[in-house]
Design a protein around this nucleic acid. Structure first.
Lengths: 211, 211
DNA sequence: CACATTCGGCTAACATTGTTAGCCTTCGGG
DNA sequence: CCCGAAGGCTAACAATGTTAGCCGAATGTG
């Protein structure tokens, strides 16, 4: 979840500014030729099935029935391919998070964490790609990160708590995906322990006057 | 922070078991020839200075004044080199965490988070190497992970909260290292927001009777 | 002392990676 | 009808990890 996944208010310099940010708009997806879209799709399944090391230009070309060099008629570089995949991932995660917040009103933080976890577990490799390492922020569709991360702000009600909440979700998900914890039964409770902590912290925050 | 970084009690099946685990021992470092140690050292500075892509067998051989193929007289593979670096990293982080817990008694969670953050910021690439992706757990020195992660259990007082706390620290540190947040001033407050949440949760946990 | 063995260096090579250059066919629009 | 672009191909390059095989020097051991 790159950069300002956690969109926050007009900044600390103006704490009086409206809190529940006017909903960021999801930027329109990039225009692509049919062939390019097909390639990106193939790359995605290849990544998810064979892992990151299974996604090579030659193997990708193979599954598309083409020569590796010919890929460059559709995409400028492997990096660009990754950027496309990252945009896919951001779009899906953002949709999931926004969707769940739109419904559930009782326990937004719990619901948000669940949705985040599910999205990551559904596409582990893609999640890793989206959130691993520092990538060129300039290449990503303008506004996509902010839109995808907005739900954390909405659920937390405070920019700093929002970032902390996202950090917790990100860290826990990565550790779960990487199998760094012990057994499976603990994991639900680990998520829950964090959720409880953040819910309590949320309650301690002074309600933003919705003037 | 591989596997059971967060060591916890004898498991949930026996909640009555002694809580403050008998302090895990730091396993003795692996025996190495002087030359191997020198190479690993060079690899480490190379990694930290030039980044992960700057650490290649040939460049490493160059800085040591040797031919790439000759490296294999000292190390079986690049993977083994990485494992050695991971052990270094675990050792350092674990030392930092244990050290800080040994002193400060007033605010263990805050002190622990500070120490974790400092350790990571001091050696970003090494931290990423240690904690990124799933690696063969069997290769790591027996007990090293558990020892390095023990402080989280000690500070949190509950295995699930400990894992959640570690998750938060890990996620926040990664996002900070990768520059995924916005500006610098926010970061202290992000860490603090999380710290407060976990401290409150810690207080809510029933004191383990130290019988 | 002579001899064998191991240690630690070397060069050459291989397969695999991303990527570029250059050629050729096909097909739609002036 | 021709021209140019789209989109395929082969050949090649540099850099990656890694292996095979050679060789000199040190280090015991009979």
């Amino acid at each position: 979840m790159p950069s300002d996944l956690v969109a926050h208010g007009p900044s600390d310099s103006d704490p009086k500014a409206a809190y529940p940010q006017p909903s960021t708009a999801r930027p329109a997806p990039r225009a692509r030729t049919a062939r390019a879209a097909e390639i990106i799709d193939a790359a995605r399944t290849l990544l998810e099935d064979r892992g990151p090391r299974g996604l090579t230009m030659r193997k990708l070309a193979d599954t598309v029935g083409i020569q590796a060099a010919s890929l460059y008629k559709h995409l400028p570089s492997r990096r660009a391919l990754e950027v496309a995949l990252v945009e896919h991932g951001l779009d899906e995660i953002g949709s999931a998070l926004h969707g769940v917040l739109a419904k559930s009103t009782a326990d937004p933080i719990g619901a948000l964490l669940d949705a985040y976890r599910s999205a990551g577990l559904a596409n582990p490799q893609l999640y890793r790609l989206v959130t691993s390492g520092s990538f060129p922020r300039g290449q990503i569709l303008e506004g996509l990160e902010a839109w995808a991360g907005e739900p954390f702000f909405l659920a937390a009600g405070d920019p700093h708590l929002a970032q902390a909440l996202w950090s917790f979700a990100h860290g826990t998900l990565l550790l779960e995906l990487d199998g760094r914890f012990l057994d499976g039964s603990d994991l639900d409770r680990t998520w829950q322990a964090g959720a409880e902590a953040f819910k309590a912290a949320r309650r301690a925050i002074p309600r933003p006057s919705v003037r």
